[in-house]
Simulated assay, not measured.
Amino acid sequence: MHLAISLDIADDDGQDILDFGQISAFVRNLEAAGVDMVIISDSTDAPSTSPFEATTLIAALATVTEKIGLVASASTLAHQPYNLARRFASLDIISHGRIGWNATMAQNPREAANFSRSEGFSDEDFRRRAAEYIGIVQGLWRSWDTDALLFDKAGGRFHDPDKMHFLDHKSEFFSVRGPLNIARSPQDTPVLVMSGLVEAEFDFAARFADIALLDAVSLANAKAACDDLKRRAATAGRGPNALKTLATLQAGPEIGTDRLDHLLTAQGCDGLNFALPADLSALDDFTDRILPNLRRHNPARSAHAGATLRDHLGLGAGGER
C-alpha cells in the first residue's frame, strides 16, 4: 500500500507560523518511515501557516532529503502553463526525479481575482480550461526525447532536430509554441497528481493523471471511486500501472491504532493519503502516534527502491498508455 501525506500550509486557524527547520524535520521523519511522498498544498488568496510558496519549499526540501517524493500544488489560474512546466521540470532535475505537480480541479472563486479575472470562470469553463492547461504542460514536458541532446562539439551538433518537438498549441484558452527549454525529466516526466475531482472529471483524470487523490467519506465509497477510475483508465487504453488511486483521510486523533491497522490492510485503492494541517501540534501528534505504526507496517520499505518517484510508486513512464 502506497502512503502519502498532504500538508496544508494554507491554513488561517491562527496557528503559529512553521519555519523551514520544523517542516524539513517532519518530512525527514516521513522519509524514514517509508512514506512515498509528501504533498504541499498552497493557495494564493488565504493566510498561511507557512511563509513559503509551495514550489519554493519543495526545492529546499529536495536538498535535505534523498528518497521521498515531493509534490507541490500549483494553480492553473496563478501560472502560465509554459512557466509552470519549466518550473517543475527544473525541480525534477534538482531532485533527481522525485517531483510531482498536484493539479487541483476544484476552483477557488477568490483566486481568479488576484490574476486579472475578477469575474472568475463558470465551473464548466474552469474545467475545460484546466484540462487544456494540463495537456499543454504534459506536452511541453515531452519536448525533448530522452536521447535528443547530443552535446557533440566535434560535429557541431547540440541536439538531434528530429528529437525536439514543437507543441504549436492553439486553442480556446491558450496559445503555446514550445519547445520547453529544459531537458527531459530524470523520470521521463514529473508525476501528475490530480485532486478535487468530481465525477464529471473522472474520464479526464483516468486518461491523464498518474495519481488520483480521492476524498473519502468512507472506505467503501473510496473503493467504489477507485474501481471506477481504474475501469475508465482501462477503457482509455492505459496499462494497469499507469494510474494509482489514493484515498484521502483526515489524520486526526480519532485514528487510533486499531483503525490505523485496518486502514493500512484494507483493500480497494492503491494507498492512503493522510491530510493534516501545518501546525506544530498536528505534526508532533502525527510523528509520535502514527509514524511508529507506519514504520511497523513498512519495515525496510521496498517502495523506496529505485531513484525516482515513479519508481517508488510503481508507475510507468510519463504518459504511458
Results as ranks from 00 to 15, higher is better:
1 M>N: 03
4 A>D: 09
5 I>E: 13
9 I>D: 02
10 A>Y: 05
15 Q>D: 14
18 L>E: 09
19 D>F: 04
23 I>K: 12
24 S>G: 14
25 A>E: 13
25 A>S: 15
27 V>A: 15
29 N>S: 15
30 L>G: 14
31 E>M: 11
35 V>C: 08
35 V>H: 02
37 M>Q: 15
39 I>G: 12
39 I>T: 13
40 I>G: 09
41 S>R: 15
42 D>N: 15
44 T>C: 01
51 P>E: 08
51 P>S: 11
56 T>N: 09
56 T>K: 10
58 I>S: 06
58 I>W: 06
60 A>R: 14
61 L>S: 07
69 G>P: 02
69 G>T: 01
70 L>E: 04
73 S>P: 00
80 Q>D: 09
81 P>G: 06
82 Y>P: 00
83 N>G: 15
83 N>A: 14
84 L>S: 09
85 A>E: 01
87 R>H: 11
90 S>W: 10
91 L>V: 05
93 I>C: 02
94 I>E: 11
97 G>D: 06
100 G>Y: 06
101 W>D: 05
104 T>K: 08
110 R>K: 09
115 F>Y: 15
116 S>P: 01
119 E>R: 12
122 S>N: 06
123 D>Y: 04
126 F>S: 05
129 R>V: 12
130 A>I: 02
132 E>K: 11
141 W>G: 00
144 W>Y: 07
146 T>H: 03
148 A>N: 04
149 L>P: 00
150 L>K: 03
151 F>Q: 04
151 F>K: 07
153 K>E: 07
155 G>P: 04
156 G>S: 08
157 R>E: 05
162 D>A: 10
164 M>Q: 14
165 H>Q: 01
166 F>L: 06
167 L>R: 08
170 K>D: 07
172 E>S: 11
176 V>D: 03
180 L>P: 01
183 A>Y: 03
187 Q>L: 06
190 P>Y: 12
197 L>S: 08
199 E>W: 06
199 E>D: 13
202 F>S: 03
204 F>G: 02
204 F>R: 02
205 A>V: 04
207 R>I: 11
210 D>W: 03
210 D>L: 10
213 L>M: 12
216 A>C: 05
221 N>A: 15
222 A>V: 01
231 R>Y: 04
239 G>P: 01
242 A>V: 07
253 P>H: 08
256 G>M: 04
256 G>T: 03
257 T>E: 15
258 D>T: 13
268 G>N: 08
270 D>I: 07
270 D>C: 05
270 D>V: 08
271 G>V: 00
273 N>T: 03
273 N>G: 04
277 P>I: 03
279 D>T: 13
279 D>S: 09
284 D>L: 01
289 R>G: 04
290 I>S: 00
291 L>H: 02
292 P>S: 09
298 N>E: 00
301 R>Y: 05
302 S>N: 00
306 G>E: 02
309 L>H: 02
310 R>K: 04
310 R>M: 08
310 R>Y: 07
312 H>V: 05
312 H>P: 00
316 G>C: 13
317 A>L: 13
317 A>D: 07
320 E>N: 01
321 R>I: 06
